[in-house]
Write a protein that binds this DNA or RNA. Structure first.
Length: 202
DNA sequence: CCTGCGATTTGCT
DNA sequence: GCAAATCGCAGGC
């Protein structure tokens, strides 16, 4: 990987499991501005949504099933599932072992491996079309369904904290996108003014 | 620019 | 059998 230009900040402190060992709303807000990489490809998280156990929109609301049991497990794991038969969605499991909660990663600002992302997403796309939505970013980062239950704080994934020398980002909260149950809860968080938010985000 | 719809698989009822 | 935490394209204004 030494030949790949590094536009992100490789010196940023990696997040560890304890960062995710708390309720999903603070985690979702604190993830804004952090860097997510898969096999060295990724960028800065600019949009997230929180899902709690006691939340009809959360997949764990119906209980523990084969698909949702990872949500009840230890924090810092990936929950990847298929939506509408085509799109993969990436979540980070949060909160203590035994409590079901997750944060959906909805959009990132591409920083590293941009050419590879463009190739995976298909030709003729601008930088802001690469990862501006939960299905798009899984395609751009090549995140697969089989990676559900893998740790996001271990290779091939990397999660790095915000640059402490920068000002804390301004975060805007709003209603979550694309859901029918619990749609009124303002548990979506965006980096204010970012060019790389999902289309439905303000 | 904005609205509407088809694609396509999984897992639960 | 059906709904689902989406996306991209076609067509109209």
């Amino acid at each position: 990987m030494s030949g790949v230009a590094t536009r992100g900040s490789s010196r940023l402190a990696p997040l560890d499991e304890s960062f995710f060992d708390r309720p999903p709303r603070p985690v979702a807000q604190d993830l804004i501005g952090c860097e997510l990489l898969h096999d060295g490809v990724g960028g800065r998280i600019v949009e997230t949504e929180a899902y709690e156990e006691d939340d009809p929109a959360c997949h764990a609301f119906i209980g523990r099933t084969g698909r949702t049991k990872v949500l009840f497990g230890p924090p810092g794991r990936a929950y990847v599932y298929l939506c509408y038969g085509i799109h993969r969605m990436l979540n980070v499991v949060t909160d203590a072992d035994g409590i079901a909660a997750a944060v959906l990663i909805r959009a990132i600002e591409p920083l590293e491996g941009v050419e590879l992302m463009a190739e995976r997403r298909g030709g003729g796309r601008s930088a802001r079309e690469l990862c501006s939505g939960p299905g798009k970013l899984c395609q751009a980062l090549a995140i697969e369904l089989e990676q559900t239950r893998m740790s996001l704080v271990e290779p091939p994934f990397q999660l790095r904290g915000r640059d402490p020398s920068l000002e804390a980002p301004t975060i805007v909260a709003g209603p979550r996108i694309g859901i029918t149950k619990g749609a009124e809860l303002p548990w979506r968080y965006c980096l204010a003014g970012s060019e790389y938010l999902s289309q439905s985000a303000g």
